[in-house]
Each structure stands twice: as C-alpha cells, then as structure tokens.
Design a protein around this nucleic acid. Structure first.
Lengths: 152, 152
DNA sequence: CTTGAAAAGAACTGCCT
DNA sequence: AGGCAGTTCTTTTCAAG
C-alpha cells in the first residue's frame, strides 16, 4: 500500500483510460516534464500498483453479440468438488471471467456467445454438464459502463 | 464483424494479455516480421476490434482490499426511475462498474472499499440511499481469473 | 511477406535548481 | 521534489525485392 498525491491520482486516471500512453505524452497532459513523469510511473510500477495492461476488444465486432453473467451455486462443496469445478470451467472457451465469490453464489461467470441460440448450446452442453453444479442464475448484459473507481 | 485467420487470433491472444507489446515483439513471438505484424494490427484497429487499452491496477496495493458485487433490483421501473438510478450510481466513487442486465437483477455493480467496515459505510450511506433501490444481493470477491474467451 | 534503412520517438541517465 | 540536456534504444514507417 502506497500513498499517492494528487498528481499520482491524475496519472492513474490517465493510464486507466489509455495504458499505452507514453511518459512524455502523460507529462505534457499533466504539466510535468518527461523525466519527472517517468520517475512517477516507475515508482508506481515498483510499488506493484500495475497488475497489467490488457487490451479489451469489442466482442460485438468479433461476432459475439451476447454476454451473460451466470451465478453458480455448487451442489456439494467439498474440496474436490471445488477443484473439479474450477478445472472444468476453465476449459470452456466461452467463459471470459471466473470469479470465486462468497454469498448467494459460489462462482460468477462471464460468458459470451454469438447469439442467443449459440448461448443455449453453451449452456446445455458446457455449463450444465459441469461437475457439481447446483443452482444457476443468469443475467443478460444490456449495457455496461466501466468507471475509474476510487483508485484515481 | 471481421473474419480472422489463425495468426490474427494468436495476435489478439497476445494483445489481450499485454496491450503494451510492440509490433516487433509480437512479430518475433509469432514468427512474423515486424512490418507484417504491424499491418495486421493496423487492420484490426481499423476494423474497430480494439475498444481500448486500459491499465488494470492492483486494488489491494492501493489500499482497497474488499471488492463486492452487488445485484440491484429496482423497486419501480418507470423510465424516470431508471434514469435517476443511473445518474446517482455514477456519482459514487466506490462503484467501478455498472452493468445493466436482464434477469433476477436490474443492475450489477462492482464496488471496492478499503475494508469491510468501509464497505458498510458505502453500503449504508451510498448504495441504500440510491433512488428506487429495491432488493439487494451481495457477493464478496474471493479471487478472480480473467481468461481470453473465444475471441482468440 | 521479406529485408534494410531512415526517421521519429520513447526510455533512461546525470546534473542542476 | 522537478527541469534540462543528452545518449541509447526501440518503434514506426517507407522503401524495394
């Protein structure tokens, strides 16, 4: 845990929106020289603030028009059940995110499909055959907005 | 919607993991020359496949140790209720993602907090005072794994 | 698609205020 | 802490085969 001043927050805000921005460009935007900005970035990186810079692509443009969130409750929760489930779910290509959670569900999955009938195929042949699956709950994504959170 | 060959998929796979990788480095990894790889990237970018390259940061390292997913069901679903809710929820800094969904909930929120007692503050003073909120359901994030999905 | 080269820009280093 | 000047490296970009 590191403490940030206002300039660091502005830097993180900018980087959250465009991870490919250079130190020079960021410095110009913040009224900082290139080396000063670079040193701040280096400090943040060494503090372990950056988990990675992953490109997010337009699923629609790639032909995946349907995104569904699945809440999964396991039927049995022994250790082997959990491990079996995790191993099996990671082999499903349509699953983009696996979140292990505590609450009404045990797992939350983000699943993409080409269309609704394609999703039905994934659900019946992939999801419902997973080992140990109990209750399922589905929510279809209509729209989403990502914000910066309090991290900036 | 664009059609991709196997090399394009490999490219997207690599970029999904590290959006800052250069055309040269990607080309070396794929057995492609730098200009060839660069042209493919340009083609993908112009096809609108890239939504952006956002840096994801370690919330833990920034002092936010608790992530909670909230399922929100609105009490009333008139148009003004929806608009009021959306406007109000976007003013809460602790909310990182707002997903408008269809199903058991109307919205799914990703909320971060410093710790559990900080989350209680957010919940009581921010979330529960949102206009039109009906039922709430919470899931605490234990761990998560992002995968590539079928886009690669 | 490849190699090769030129041009541009980014990363990094000392030194100074 | 930030700025300036400079070097070195990478990346982009444009040729030509």
């Amino acid at each position: 845990m590191i403490d940030l001043d206002e300039t660091d927050r502005a830097l993180l805000r900018a980087l959250a929106q465009d991870a490919t921005a250079s130190a020079g460009a960021l410095g110009r935007a913040l009224g900082l020289s290139q080396p000063a900005c670079w040193r701040r970035i280096k400090r943040l990186r060494e503090a372990g603030v950056f988990r990675g810079a992953q490109l997010d692509m337009d699923a629609q443009a790639l032909g995946f028009g349907v995104t569904v969130f699945l809440g999964v409750k396991l039927a049995a929760k022994g250790r082997s059940s959990v491990e079996d489930f995790e191993r099996a779910v990671q082999a499903i290509p349509e699953v983009q995110t696996v979140e292990h959670v505590l609450g009404a569900y045990d797992y939350r999955l983000r699943v993409v499909a080409r269309d609704i009938s394609d999703f039905e195929r994934v659900l019946r042949r992939r999801i419902m055959t997973l080992p140990g699956v109990g209750n399922l709950d589905a929510n279809v994504l209509l729209s989403e907005e990502r914000r910066l959170g309090p991290l900036g």
